[in-house]
Structures are given as C-alpha cells and as structure tokens.
Amino acid sequence: MNARSLAAERTALAWRRTAVAAMVVAALFLNHSAMQGWRAVALAPTGAAITMAVVAVLSFSRNRALHQGRYGRGGGAIAATALAVLAVACVAAAIGFTDPRP
C-alpha cells in the first residue's frame, strides 16, 4: 500500500468514528426530548438530534467515498460538520445551564 491509500484509510476510519459518535449524540438528545414529554421545550434537543443525524449521514457518505477511491476535496464536508457540531454544542450548553440534573 502506498502512503496516499493509507492516509485515505485513516481518514475514512475517522469519518466512520464521527458518524458513530454523531448517532450516539443524536440518541442522547432524543432521549432528553422524550424525557421532557415532547413539549415545546423539547424543540431544541430534537433539532439538535436531527442535525446530528444529518452529520452522521454526511460522515458515512464521506467514509464510503474515500473507500471507493473518490478522494476529492472534503473541505465542504469538514466545514459543514464543524458548524453543525458547534451549533449542537451550543444547544447542549444551553440545556446544561437551564436544566441541570444531577
């Protein structure tokens, strides 16, 4: 294997880990929404869960593209993922400050 294919394999595995982590975070936000009783207060966590599900799909598709040898430029995927994670982190911080549970 050459260095380029090894780097692509490492990057593909990183995208797969990102997809798995995004799905775990989405499940946690959905759990929080369900515990709130699906009221209006659960709108932000539900939106965050949907955002993380989209990140998971994007990450998995980037992983598949790298495995298929379509290296391309991943700048758009990286920027979209970073912005989505930042937005969801803000939602998580807001939930932590407004609804601190032991």
Rank of each mutant, 00 (worst) to 15 (best):
V41D: 12
Q36D: 11
A80I: 03
S33M: 09
M52S: 03
L13T: 11
L6F: 12
R4W: 07
A89F: 12
G96I: 10
G76N: 03
M1V: 11
S59V: 08
A93C: 13
A65C: 08
G76W: 02
R101D: 13
T18K: 02
D99T: 14
V24Y: 06
R70S: 12
A49Q: 02
G96S: 07
A22K: 06
W38I: 09
A48E: 00
A87P: 02
R70N: 12
A27P: 01
A56C: 05
V20N: 04
H32P: 00
T81M: 08
V20G: 00
P100A: 11
A7Y: 08
E9S: 15
G75H: 04
G69M: 05
A48W: 08
V91Q: 05
F29E: 01
M1R: 13
A53G: 14
T46W: 01
P45M: 08
A84F: 04
A79R: 13
T46S: 14
T81E: 09
S5E: 15
D99P: 00
A26G: 08
S5R: 15
V41I: 07
R17V: 03
A8W: 01
W38S: 12
A19H: 04
C90I: 14
T81Y: 02
V55Y: 01
M35Q: 14
A42S: 15
A93R: 13
H32M: 07
L43K: 04
I50L: 10
W15V: 04
F29S: 00
V25Y: 01
M1K: 07
L30P: 00
A3I: 11
M35E: 13
A14H: 10
S59P: 08
A44D: 14
A56T: 11
F97G: 14
R17A: 12
A14P: 03
A8D: 09
R73M: 04
R4H: 11
R39I: 07
A82K: 08
A26F: 04
T46F: 10
H32W: 15
T46P: 01
A79L: 15
A65N: 07
R16E: 14
P45E: 01
A26P: 01
L30G: 01
L83H: 05
M1H: 12
P100F: 13
T46M: 11
V91M: 09
G72Q: 06
F60N: 13
N63Q: 14
I78H: 02
M52G: 00
A22Y: 05
